[in-house]
């Protein structure tokens, strides 16, 4: 199985996903009410920025064969920290936002330190921090404190438009392009992929495995902080419950986008398509008269079905990747390398 074949297989998965997306759009345009309006498209984009940002950085993490369950909780913690810094420490919001980004990256670094330093499984480490980060957010605010009345300039980030496009969409596009370049056009991306294929191999090939992993998890922390800021700016309120369950939504989008949960295979544009397919589905279902009152439940149900169909489609004969042929797939979120 050559590298070339892998690449075309990935491309094919994305083409299929693109087709699904087109079908969704056509269907909802025909069956839904006011689906294709400018305002509604803006809604779809605005509402998918946080999950989208998290998915964009979850993708490199999964590419290395890892996983990060803590991003949703970290979003909550960062929202609270941002509010604390702005309201209680009296920092201007720009500075508070910068500091929050730093703290987010630091929290990601904490995950990375445990994962690389002690060679602990990412699944377990981030399961622990999933609880820890949310717990800290609750402890800081006692669960009850909410931060509101942010300055208009800040809220513009989440509710305004620049050139007709939601403000946070510009941020999303910038991050998307940056992550795409990072994954597909730099040696960082190649080393993440290599680590995902075989951490030991990557090590023997002389790649700085630890540093590359730290980068991936810190990026995830940084982006959780950025998502916390766009979330707060859109919602106007920061509270300890922000971002509950977002980690699963992000993982779903990444996997639907064709990234192998075992690492090594995947693309950023696939992830973006995954985000879009879910966002359009959720939005569209709330516009078809027959499903309007069950949109919330049905979108979950159909996303699950889509996920299984997309993966099963990929597992059909001829589409089985090299790694799937082996009887022994790597465990998800297992240690970077199992110590003997």
């Amino acid at each position: 199985m050559s590298f070339r074949f892998q690449k075309t297989a990935v491309l094919r998965h994305e083409t299929v996903l693109l087709l699904v997306l087109v079908l969704e759009v056509v269907f909802f345009q025909l069956a839904g009410r006011n689906f294709g309006t400018v305002d509604n498209v803006a809604n779809i984009v605005r509402h998918s920025v946080e999950i989208g940002l998290l998915a964009l950085v979850m993708m490199p993490v999964i590419l290395t064969g890892g996983i990060d369950l803590s991003v949703g909780s970290l979003l909550g913690l960062c929202a609270v920290l941002f509010g604390k810094l702005w309201r209680d420490a009296g920092l201007p919001w720009e500075l508070a936002a910068l500091a929050t980004l730093g703290l987010g990256a630091l929290a990601g670094g904490f995950n990375a330190a445990l994962i690389t330093g002690l060679r602990l499984p990412p699944l377990i480490v981030t399961l622990g921090t999933y609880s820890l980060f949310r717990g800290l957010a609750e402890a800081i605010t006692h669960g009850t404190d909410a931060f509101t009345r942010f300055p208009e300039r800040f809220l513009f980030l989440g509710t305004g438009r620049i050139a007709g496009v939601p403000t946070q969409a510009w941020i999303f596009v910038a991050v998307g392009v940056a992550v795409w370049l990072l994954v597909h056009r730099t040696t960082f991306g190649r080393s993440w992929r290599a680590i995902g294929f075989s951490p030991e191999g990557a090590r023997y090939a002389g790649l700085p495995v630890t540093r590359r992993l730290v980068l991936a998890y810190m990026l995830a922390g940084l982006m959780a902080a950025l998502a916390a800021i766009t979330y707060t700016a859109r919602f106007g309120t920061a509270k300890a419950d922000a971002g509950t369950g977002y980690e699963l939504a992000a993982i779903t989008a990444v996997v639907l986008g064709g990234t192998s949960i075992f690492g090594g295979v995947g693309s950023v544009h696939g992830t973006l398509l995954g985000v879009a397919a879910i966002a359009v589905l959720t939005n569209g279902l709330s516009r078809v008269p027959a499903t309007m009152s069950n949109a919330a439940e049905l979108s979950g149900l159909l996303t699950g079905a889509l996920l299984i169909v997309a993966l099963a489609g990929g597992a059909l004969p001829g589409r089985i990747g090299a790694r799937r042929r082996k009887e022994h797939p790597p465990a998800v979120g297992a240690p970077v390398s199992d110590p003997a």
């Binding site: 979950g300 699950g304 079905a305 996920l307 993966l311 797939p329």
Partner: peptide
């Protein structure tokens, strides 16, 4: 049988059981 990754399969069935029940 289909050799799909268990975390993804059960992520999907988790949502499907729960939302089906809610419906």
């Amino acid at each position: 049988v289909l050799r799909l990754p268990s975390i993804v399969v059960t992520l999907a069935t988790m949502v499907m059981w729960r939302e089906g029940l809610r419906l």
